[in-house]
Amino acid sequence: MLGWAATFLIIALIAGVLGFGGIAGAAAGIAKIIFFIFIVLLVISLLVNALRGKTPKL
């Protein structure tokens, strides 16, 4: 999921440099939403693993 956020961020940067403001804004918005969803899922995953008491396997 973090890879998708990075992809949309790169698309937004390229579109912004080339002058496509609408596409750049939309791609940046999508990247921001996906990034925050990733952060929320990461926190939930860490909390669930902490409450279970299992140590992560390395």
Rank of each mutant, 00 (worst) to 15 (best):
L9S: 15
N49P: 11
A5H: 03
F8P: 13
L41G: 04
G29I: 05
F38S: 00
T55C: 04
G19D: 04
K54Q: 05
I11L: 14
A15E: 03
L9Y: 14
L41Q: 03
M1K: 06
L2P: 11
A27E: 00
I44K: 02
W4M: 13
I23K: 05
L42T: 05
G16E: 01
G22C: 02
K57F: 13
L42S: 08
L42G: 05
A5F: 08
V17D: 07
I44N: 02
A26H: 05
K57G: 07
A31T: 10
K57Y: 14
K57V: 14
W4V: 10
M1D: 09
L46T: 10
I37Q: 01
G21R: 09
I30Y: 14
K32S: 15
K54C: 04
K32I: 14
I10A: 12
S45P: 07
A6S: 11
G29K: 04
L51P: 09
A12G: 06
L2M: 15
L18S: 12
I39T: 06
M1I: 09
G25A: 02
I44V: 09
A5M: 03
L58H: 12
A12L: 00
W4R: 13
G25C: 00
L47S: 13
A12C: 03
L51T: 00
M1A: 11
I23Y: 10
A5C: 02
N49T: 12
F38N: 05
V43I: 02
L9P: 13
A24S: 04
I14H: 11
L51N: 06
G22W: 13
K32R: 12
P56Y: 02
F35E: 15
P56I: 08
I23D: 11
G25N: 01
K32F: 15
K32E: 14
G25R: 03
G21F: 13
I23M: 14
F35I: 15
G3V: 07
S45N: 05
V17G: 04
I37S: 00
A50I: 01
W4Y: 15
S45D: 06
A28M: 06
G3Q: 07
G19Q: 08
G53V: 00
A15M: 08
F20E: 02
L9E: 15
A50E: 08
L42C: 00
F36D: 05
V48H: 08
F36L: 09
G25L: 01
G21N: 10
I10K: 14
